[in-house]
Write a protein that binds this DNA or RNA. Sequence first.
DNA 1: GTGTGATTTTTGTTGCAACATAATCTTGCA
DNA 2: TGCAAGATTATGTTGCAACAAAAATCACAC
Lengths: 234, 234
Amino acid sequence: MITSTQFVAEDDRQQPRLGDRVYQQIKERLIRGAHGPGDKLTVRALAEDLGVSSTPARDAINRLVLEGALVYAGPKTVIVPFLDAQALEEITLMRLALEGLAAEKAAARVSGEDIDLLRETQLRINAALDQRRYADALWSNKEFHFAIYRLCGMPHLLATIETLWLRIGASFNDLYPEFAEAKYGVHNHMAAMEGLAEGDSGAVRAAIESDIRDGYRRLKRADRERTSAQTRPD
Amino acid sequence: MITSTQFVAEDDRQQPRLGDRVYQQIKERLIRGAHGPGDKLTVRALAEDLGVSSTPARDAINRLVLEGALVYAGPKTVIVPFLDAQALEEITLMRLALEGLAAEKAAARVSGEDIDLLRETQLRINAALDQRRYADALWSNKEFHFAIYRLCGMPHLLATIETLWLRIGASFNDLYPEFAEAKYGVHNHMAAMEGLAEGDSGAVRAAIESDIRDGYRRLKRADRERTSAQTRPD
DNA sequence: GTGTGATTTTTGTTGCAACATAATCTTGCA
DNA sequence: TGCAAGATTATGTTGCAACAAAAATCACAC
């Protein structure tokens, strides 16, 4: 499980609300691609689906909208957004700036056991790819990145990066094969770990930026193919 | 009034909710320093204060918490956060990354009349400073920055930057004199406008980064004085 | 005075009904 | 067949009461 550091400061609310549970479930569905772009979400349907009243369901939807994982398509219509090429580029630029920063700062605070954990995570990525378990590969890839970003001890930064991943994930995680394409990112990940081991912050940043750019190219290509094949219903 | 582009994509919900009004009012109070760090906000008090029921008041508080403008200090206690030196540095690093990016991209899309508008805004800043109207100076300063950031046409980026300003503003906008100190940022702003006029994206980024760093030094100094003078009640 | 435990008050969350309005369906006409 | 207007359904928002839990207050012993 990724951090779930959803609140910027330490969340002193110990007992999770019902709305949080709903939020997590929708988030999970979005990440797993259970809802594709254009799918409509309603308060009542969600409430009945999860066996809660409308208040927590409404809370969860509002929260997702605020984070950009859902958008209004009309005054009473929230949908999973279509991420067009322009939005994808924008979010990628933000990722480069923010994840690059995180990677750089992480190099200064990394420990030996941190690197060991990263190595294990990378092994899980490789194994999943070898066995064509793309969903698992994607998940471990996420773990790898956030394990690095967590190192720098910047909660605001971490929370912001998470929302960016969610915005992209909602639209693109149904593209496992293309996204996780053969040995996705393995070279960049190795370079990142080397940089961390040597305390070379510039190298870590470069490796992460390269990883993001590689992923961007794949996503852009996938988006082009998708939009050319079937005309988008919007 | 600043954009209020609170929703990432174009907000198709035309009729604003009651909760939005509450949200805007609290945001306004925070920016104006009407609530200092440590102040407690309760749903019922807010609701009665603004003459609405608890639902919109609760919505507004939750939204502010999600944006980091308020934080939980306990399971049932939301307060205006104390921004310590570390958090201030973190947010400054994020601002450098994100506003630097926005400034750079703005240079490629700026028009002549955009620059004219910026010039007018700068005149308002100068006038306000000359007359010691620090609150107005701060407001116009904000307008200046966001007028630039809006140019790049990146709604996700703009929304994220806004939340960063809000997080800092809640803790530091009660420091007008120190913050708006003699001709605050006028040199950097001139450099930014020159860079925009010449389409020199690097120069614009450098000017904005310099402006952010100057502001950071002032805030850090003010914070040091404040925390040394009176022991913080936390 | 000071700390500790019980008691009272306050508070966030949840469920739910009412309301206004937007989305959707139906019907009629060209 | 296409489309426009009216009727119907569905939906988000709001207000409010109930509940559990936390915070604040108070009492009392030391």
